[in-house]
Design a binder for these strands. Sequence first.
DNA 1: TTCTTATTTAACAATATAGTTAAATAAGAA
DNA 2: TTCTTATTTAACTATATTGTTAAATAAGAA
Lengths: 108, 108
Amino acid sequence: MSKLNSTFAALSDPTRFAIVNQLLENGEKSAGSLKGIVAISGPAISRHLKILRNAGVVEQRIDAQRRMYRVRPQAIMAIHNWTISHQEFWQSSLARLEQVLIAEKETK
Amino acid sequence: MSKLNSTFAALSDPTRFAIVNQLLENGEKSAGSLKGIVAISGPAISRHLKILRNAGVVEQRIDAQRRMYRVRPQAIMAIHNWTISHQEFWQSSLARLEQVLIAEKETK
DNA sequence: TTCTTATTTAACAATATAGTTAAATAAGAA
DNA sequence: TTCTTATTTAACTATATTGTTAAATAAGAA
């Protein structure tokens, strides 16, 4: 729980969020092939990957000259678990809001 | 999906993450009483709340001089839904990792 | 109206973030 | 070794973020 905000920080940048979604949807990708998904220089992608790695969101595997990146499942599960730990709050709040909308519809 | 990274940005600051957790656990709180949870000035808290509000993470209700803040359940649900949309990836990845650990234990 | 409480906005300084190009490093191929 | 491909690190600039104090605004109470 204490380092979840670092995970959120890693995912707060649009480029990094796009990288992570790309890796989640298509699995492992090289640094170079990730460069294609946004109009950005190589060094910029490289640094974003370093930030994601330091936050524990992705991990690296070396394949000859290429560095292959994939999402660490634990990172996404940690976010999931945080939402679950407050699930009662948001689910009941939403249920109440829905009841209000239904009541308003009946009044009109 | 497109504005989830703004939600993550709002939650990336440790002070804001603490504020949100406080509101999730104890419900609606005034700006002033939130000041107590971190050693920070009033104006700083006020601006953090504005950022959270702009990101759609909290909403405000006016009660005389006080501004009461509460978490918008939709914000947490949006995060939850994102983790769910990739659940197959992270759950099966974790299951595979666990299998590897079991296999290693048997080898030792 | 004037005082008090609660909160926000303004102005500013310090630090962090993200992008760029050029140089360095890593590793296979000629 | 030298060339080529892939990626990272260094150096630098521009912009964003966060915190502070002082002033402004909001609203009830005297």
